[in-house]
Amino acid sequence: MFWGFQLEFKQSLRTKKLWVILGVMMLLYIPGFYFQKASGEGIETVQQAVSVLIGNINGLGGFFIAILALLMGATAINSEVEKGTLRVAMSKPITRLGYIGGKFIAHTVVVLMALLLTTLVGIAGLAWLGAPMGSQLVTDSLLLNGLLLLAMIQLIALGYIISTIVKSSSTALGVALVIMFVVFMIMPAIVQFMAAKDTIISDHPDWEAYQEKSKEYKTRYLFYVPTTQIDVIVSDATKVTGDIENPQIEYVGIGGAIQKNLVNLGILFGLTLVYLALAFYRFLRMDLR
């Protein structure tokens, strides 16, 4: 397994798609701190700092790293079959399970590095803006990265399933991009419209009911979108009480949000295990010729 991990880790770090996606992400990510600095908007509390970090990492960073995770998985197996390197690897004293296990761990480590890079840039940007640093910021950053890593593992596993079904790596890339477009953009928009139609597109819009209906519909109809499940979880990091005229905002943190949304966390874990089992089963049974 270590041999497969070492080989795949080196190859993954040399792939153009890794550095292109990270480069584009940083080009869009870093200027946001500059514009916020230029606008004169300060960050006075740790809670505000965490909110900004959540928005950046879970929003922009999560989207681009999700693309990276799915594309890496979608070409993990079929590209090796096309190049003939998989048969060479299987001629060595290594089992199929050890090979795919090492490859999968390598991809997970690469995605984790991308997440940590995004987080470090985010924290550095917050420090540059003068935001107070504290244990709450560190704790919530770690918890958020843990959730995102679980989501990315799910997408890598989904990519592996694609890679073991679609023989052509170029076709698999196209399939992965279509899935990203439909699953991450079209379906969430449809579900949001459904929630809005049932609550606020009327003569008496109810924004509180819309938020609850949106969470319900996202959990029910978008259970296969890991980043959406994270959105549902982190949306409860801030608790609003009181009336409209005098709202009281209480920051409960990512830990409190996770405890309140154990169903969504269970969906993340459960579907990740299902995808992993299917991917490994497909590889162990597939014809490598």
Rank of each mutant, 00 (worst) to 15 (best):
I21L: 09
R285E: 05
I65N: 02
I162W: 06
L126K: 01
I43A: 08
I254W: 02
L71I: 07
I230M: 08
A74P: 04
L142K: 09
G102D: 03
L143W: 02
L120N: 10
G32V: 13
I249M: 13
M25Q: 08
L116V: 15
A189W: 07
E8A: 14
G23V: 09
S214P: 00
T118L: 10
K92R: 15
G23I: 12
V138C: 10
T119Y: 08
L271S: 07
S170P: 11
M187G: 00
H107V: 10
Q192Y: 12
M25V: 06
Y34K: 14
I186Q: 00
T15V: 12
L222Y: 00
L149N: 02
I190F: 05
M133Q: 15
E80F: 01
S235E: 06
R282W: 04
G255E: 03
Y210T: 06
M90V: 11
I153G: 03
G84A: 08
I254L: 06
G102C: 03
V274R: 05
E208K: 12
D243N: 15
A172G: 05
Y160L: 09
S12H: 09
I94H: 04
T45Y: 09
L27G: 13
F184A: 09
I258D: 00
F280E: 03
N264G: 06
V263L: 15
F181D: 05
V182I: 09
R220D: 11
V138I: 15
L271Y: 10
L155W: 06
V138N: 12
T272G: 06
M25L: 14
L137C: 03
L155P: 00
P31G: 00
M180Y: 02
G73A: 04
V183Y: 11
L143F: 10
G101Y: 00
V88C: 15
K215I: 06
A69S: 05
Y210W: 12
G134R: 04
L53F: 06
G130D: 04
I100F: 00
V20D: 08
G266M: 11
V240F: 08
V274C: 01
L143M: 11
M185F: 10
I54S: 08
Q211S: 14
I65G: 02
M133A: 14
